[in-house]
Amino acid sequence: MSSMMRSSPTSEAARPAEVAAPPSVAQPSQGYDGAGPFPVEADADAPAAPRGISDRLYVTVTAAIVVAPFLGLGLAGWLLWGSLIHPADVLLALALYVVTGLGVTVGFHRGLTHGGYRAVRPVRVALAVAGSLSFQGDVIGWVATHRRHHAFTDRPGDPHSPYRYGTHLRGQLRGLAHAHVGWLFRNEPTSAGRYAPDLLADRDIRAVSRAFPALCALTLALPFAAGWAIGGTWQRALTALLWAGLVRIALLHHVTWSVNSLCHMIGRRPFRTRRHDRATNLWPLALLSFGESWHNLHHADPTSARHGVDRGQIDPSAAFIRLLERVGWVYDVRWPTPDRVTARRA
């Protein structure tokens, strides 16, 4: 990889804008006060598909993606009863968690969604592949949904706000479940043409997006094959599949979903955000989320390549971006400056 060269300006996809959608897109519905449930017509940008075979198929596939890792966790617990987990399973799970997690945070999120840096094309594609191995959806759909979330944060139009059902106790509990996982079952696709036209124009990213089903199979086949190679038995292959495959996927899913849910309800808000935007910093998730849970600064300055900007705020994703910058594989990194950070403090 030391021979990688930067893509020419004509071949490099345009860096996404500052995430703010045009006024005609990002204006909240009339009468929304930040406390009541979202109006029913709020999701006009992404109407639900008619109830039919395609809708049932979507729900079935989503349920399999969400539930299968849980079943794996239960099976792993049953297998562990009275026995020990193999060290190789732990190491495989840790390695794949780091690779896929950084693929999501550095590749999908800080790079492709927000343009916090530019990457040489092989690294751009490799990070997109790594993020796709997380089982969180195809790269273009992921980016489009997240950009829409920023355009309408915690107000009508946000696909996964915990305030969808209001700010009273029952609404908050229902909203927390919706923001964490419930929104995945609504089958309300976000328009990639509106929110991710730059990725639709990128041939390599389109190819990665189309390959998502195959990459899902690969993310399970890799630990199975590694377990077989290390242990030489079906049992070792299956335990590796459970821990480095299903359990690893389940953990990363819930860490990512917790940023959508908990990091808009619990934690500190040292930085100013837009009206109705309640993004918070939640330190217990910082390491597991690779720095994504410093969510308040991220919503105050979405294109910043670093989210943890205060003393003691660990941000592994930013450290990885810095490493890539030093070896010349990413450039034009948008590091936060003291003046920029101070200007956004509450």
Rank of each mutant, 00 (worst) to 15 (best):
R174P: 09
D277Y: 15
Q313H: 15
L57W: 08
V327W: 10
A192M: 01
L73W: 15
R206W: 05
A13R: 01
H295N: 07
A63E: 06
W283V: 11
R272Y: 06
A250L: 00
H149V: 10
W283S: 15
H150F: 12
E18A: 00
A95D: 08
H276E: 04
H86Q: 09
W142Y: 11
P189H: 06
W142F: 13
S11L: 11
V59I: 13
F224S: 12
R186N: 04
P28N: 07
G312R: 00
V61E: 15
A76P: 12
D45S: 09
A343S: 07
V90C: 06
S161V: 11
L215Y: 12
A221P: 08
V123F: 01
I321M: 13
G52C: 08
R124S: 05
G101L: 13
V143F: 13
R118C: 04
I230A: 13
R194L: 02
I205G: 04
A237K: 07
L287T: 05
M265N: 13
Q27L: 01
A76Q: 15
S132G: 15
L94G: 00
T233N: 02
A319Y: 15
P87G: 05
P284K: 11
A44E: 10
D204Y: 02
W294I: 07
R6K: 08
V181Q: 08
P338S: 12
W234L: 15
A217C: 10
P189K: 02
F320E: 15
R15G: 02
A207N: 03
G36N: 06
L287Q: 09
A93K: 05
